[in-house]
Design a binder for these strands. Structure first.
Lengths: 132, 132
DNA sequence: ACATCTGTTATATTTGTAGTATAACAGACA
DNA sequence: TGTCTGTTATACTACAAATATAACAGATGT
């Protein structure tokens, strides 16, 4: 899997990493049970410190996306992804609300907004893996 | 307008302020041309430093939501809100994408996601102002 | 003229997070 | 016995967030 980092972004590196791994899972590019690189190898691959990788992995583990086995390594959670918990629903609403408010301010119609969300949803779902 | 701040949030105070003002505009509670409190009075009202307020106001001005007049004060932009610029569309997509990816990971159907977005859109649009 | 309001600018300080740099520890495994 | 894994600890730099003061400049009202 190709990792792209934007060092100029206001998003921390570990957040960018988390986002890309989550999108990799969502697109099917990363399958449950699949291995992820070790903190050291990924760190040297993309040129950051191993603690930065470790932070991303630790947070992904806390949210249930991956499993970390002390001497084996890191895998996409083979027991499946976390579900739609009440805490997740609340977090999601809190994140969506300011974005939707700004869209309304800018006179974006509900239909147009829904179409954008729908397009991104399809774009991620239907992402092909280059090795078809 | 009632401002609610969560000092424990990971969101900076000035961001929370921006979000609430934008939602106030989106709901119609704040009308174009309407005055906003001065940096000093709002700061003392909600118990934060005036620079924190000033930062929120300055950013809102940069994005076109408000106007700042040097000796008069701050008003909701009477010339109307900023439109849907290409830069805005790109920023919006970049913000939506990780959230939608996580929703897909958690097996949230597109229909359910769209329904949530739609509900929040309606909730903000139809917010009544208590002084009906 | 004077006081008072407005936003603005400048400094300095404190606190917390992000990221890096090293080093060591502990368990698995060939 | 090495070598791999994640883990923990410490220290350091850099930066953002927030506060605390203070002063400046223009407009307004008395």
């Amino acid at each position: 899997m190709i990792i792209r980092l934007d060092m100029q972004s206001d998003l921390p590196i570990y957040s960018q990493l988390m986002n890309q791994i989550i999108e990799g899972i969502a697109s099917g590019e990363l399958q449950p049970g699949e291995d992820l690189p070790s903190v050291r190898s990924l760190a040297s691959d993309i040129g950051v410190n191993l603690h930065t990788i470790n932070k991303a992995y630790t947070l992904l583990k806390q949210e249930g996306f991956i499993q970390i086995h002390r001497q084996k390594g890191v895998v996409i959670n083979p027991d499946g992804m976390p579900g739609i918990t009440p805490e997740y629903e609340q977090k999601q609403s809190e994140q969506l609300r300011p974005m939707i408010a700004e869209a309304i301010c800018r006179s974006m119609s509900k239909e147009r907004l829904l179409h954008i969300v729908s397009s991104i949803y399809e774009d991620i779902s239907h992402a092909e893996k280059g090795n078809a």
